[in-house]
Design a binder for these strands. Structure first.
Length: 396
DNA sequence: ACATCGAAAGTATCCAGATA
DNA sequence: TATCTGGATACTTTCGATGT
């Protein structure tokens, strides 16, 4: 992320920063003038959707150590202010070195060591007021998803109903409970070539994401996270609990990640289909971009793709989840929306389109995590049967 | 003009073949 | 025999190239 001086001024104006028009500013930083916490996004100022799932220290605040106000030399501040005013982006536009310097990432500036000595040869520091204003703006935008200087576009479709309940603006939680008996014993991981290892059924969390594309890189985000686990509800019913988080605005991503984080515990064993290579790295990236500690790396993860491929390679045309589901589990989906159409469904909804396809995406995702739970059991069962046969063959 | 195909994006894992 | 290397594969969408 980089931001020009022009853009910064525009943001400050939107944030209602009157200092742009004032000429009499205190030249010496005071504790009040400096941000109390230099983390770019002031999450404490936005209404808590759910309490942060992680301990406070788990939420990364890279600049927390710089929280103590550091009075900068008057000359440097005055110089920086003068340069910012006098330049007004002209140098940036003309491509001079000074302009290029101003276009450096604000995050770089903020993360720079706060000691005057360390700053001596460093780039010009951003004015504290600018940081504050920028933070206010971002906090405002997080509070009011979709709220911009332009009026909200009128939805093009009347069908805007999303399933589930809205946890906070833009974040929907869809819950379902499928009564079934929870495996009584621990499940062997021998099928995943982890002999002697087993997992408690209730520690397993099957998950799958729906994303805005395949790139897997920084530009791709998960707009839906589905998870299933074996659970005993308040009335003592056993079953598979399916929970899905769906974003209906871009701004709800942080809340979604926090909520998903709350579903995890140190004992959680993740299970997915190619999630080690696709879903997990994607989510880790999103956690990092949201400046949150990512919880996934610390957890065990059983990817069902490779054991499935080992066992069923050559049996069917391919080892896609849908194929396995159809052939092995005899599940035929009705009115299923192909995963490839999920991004279009979401983007269409964001642009005011119908929610119909988004509901179908949710159903698709629901079925995926249910299938994962079934597939896991089938792999455990198949491995056990194979071992039984081998034992019989080897016995005299 | 339309349909089909392949590459690319990021990553972990498996497996066959090559090499020390 | 052990270790290393590289190709294949799964996840999904988009776009350009190629073929009909």
């Amino acid at each position: 992320m980089s931001i020009s001086a022009d853009r910064l001024r525009a943001l400050r104006r939107q944030a209602g920063d009157t200092t742009l028009r004032q000429t009499q500013e205190p030249l010496v930083s005071t504790p009040d003038a400096l941000p109390s916490n230099l983390g770019l996004i002031d999450r404490t100022s936005s209404p808590p959707c759910t309490p942060p799932a992680t301990a406070p220290e788990a939420l990364v605040s890279p600049s927390a150590e710089h929280a103590q106000p550091v009075p900068a030399p008057v000359t440097r501040q005055a110089e920086a202010r003068t340069r910012l005013r006098a330049g007004d982006g002209v140098a940036a536009k003309s491509g001079t070195r000074a302009g290029a310097t101003r276009e450096r990432s604000i995050l770089d500036w903020m993360d720079a060591p706060a000691t005057p000595a360390a700053n001596e040869s460093a780039r010009p520091r951003l004015q504290p007021q600018s940081v504050d204003a920028l933070r206010r703006l971002i906090a405002t935008r997080e509070r009011k998803p979709g709220a911009t200087s332009t009026p909200a576009r009128k939805p093009a479709s009347l069908d805007r109903d999303l399933p589930g309940r809205e946890l906070c603006p833009g974040l929907h939680l869809i819950e379902a409970f499928l009564p079934q008996s929870i495996p009584a014993q621990t499940l062997s991981l021998a099928f995943a070539r982890r002999h002697e290892e087993a997992v408690a059924p209730r520690d397993l969390l099957f998950f799958d994401t729906e994303t805005t594309g395949l790139a897997g890189g920084t530009g791709t985000r998960a707009f839906m996270i589905g998870a299933a686990d074996w659970h005993v509800d308040g009335t003592g019913r056993q079953g598979l609990r399916v929970r899905q988080l769906m974003m209906s605005t871009m701004a709800a991503e942080g809340a979604m990640l926090r909520e998903f984080n709350a579903w995890l515990s140190p004992r959680t064993v993740l299970s997915s289909y190619n999630g080690r290579c696709y879903d997990a790295p994607l989510l880790k990236t999103r956690f990092r971009l949201a400046r949150m500690a990512e919880p996934l790396s610390a957890l065990d993860h059983v990817d069902l793709l490779f054991p499935t491929r080992r066992r069923y390679r050559g049996t069917w045309e391919n080892c896609r989840l849908a194929t396995i589901e159809r052939q092995l589990l005899r599940i035929v989906r009705e009115d299923d929306l192909p995963g490839s159409e999920a991004p279009a469904a979401w983007l269409s909804y964001l642009r005011g389109g119908s929610a119909r396809n988004l509901r179908r995406v949710a159903e698709h995702n629901h079925q995926d995590v249910v299938t994962l739970a079934q597939l896991f059991q089938r792999l455990v069962q198949a491995e056990a049967e194979e071992r039984e046969v081998l034992a019989l063959e080897q016995s005299p």
